[in-house]
């Protein structure tokens, strides 16, 4: 395709700085930056050695979910009502409930979650499930390290969510 001369639009350039202005443009800004560099030259390094060291998160940080048990009876708080699944905008929660056997209770109510799965690959960490839960059975934890090699490993089951989280994420204290 050839371009005819009429189609070419000439856009004028700004004036080329020359002389002092040019020299400042070439060196001045660079030196200003270098001053900061040099000034920090003898400071302690601020790199956080991530896997070994971690930035603390805020208390209301919404990380990986946790399911809870009652502290006294150790029954699961979740009754399998599926309200979290209904609230979830990413539709990543799946609950299949079942009836409790009074002899061998799993939760305190009539029903319990026989299957409770969250697909963390889909979760957008909005925390709606936590808000929907009438029993405070699910909360957003602080854990954000969930990378894995396999998508299906990102589907967290009830056992995984109930398990005491290995508290790897430090929490930011008051006023920090």
């Amino acid at each position: 395709m050839s371009i005819s001369p009429e189609e070419i639009k000439v856009v004028p350039r700004g004036p080329e700085p020359g002389g002092a202005g040019g020299a400042y443009r070439a060196f001045g800004e660079t030196l200003r930056g270098l001053r900061t560099t040099m000034g920090r030259l003898f400071d302690e390094p601020v790199t956080i050695q991530y896997p070994e060291e971690k930035t603390p998160v805020y208390p209301r940080f919404r990380g990986r979910h946790k399911l809870h048990r009652f502290e006294d009876s150790h029954l699961e708080k979740c009754v399998g009502c599926s309200l979290c699944a209904a609230a979830c905008p990413a539709e990543c929660i799946r609950v299949v409930a079942a009836e409790n056997d009074p002899e061998n209770r799993v939760s305190a109510g009539e029903r319990f979650a026989a299957v409770y799965e969250i697909n963390l690959a889909r979760c957008i960490f909005c925390g709606y499930c936590e808000m929907a839960c009438p029993f405070d059975a699910i909360t957003m934890g602080h854990d954000f390290e969930m990378a894995d090699y396999n998508r299906s490993d990102l589907i967290f089951t009830k056992e995984m969510l109930l398990a005491e989280a290995i508290d790897r994420t430090p929490l930011r204290g008051e006023g920090e």
Binding site: G80, C81, S82, A85, A86, V95, V96, A97, A98, E99, E110, R111
Partner: peptide
């Protein structure tokens, strides 16, 4: 049907 599903499931 008890506890098998919720209306949104």
């Amino acid at each position: 049907y008890r506890f098998r599903a919720r209306p949104w499931d």
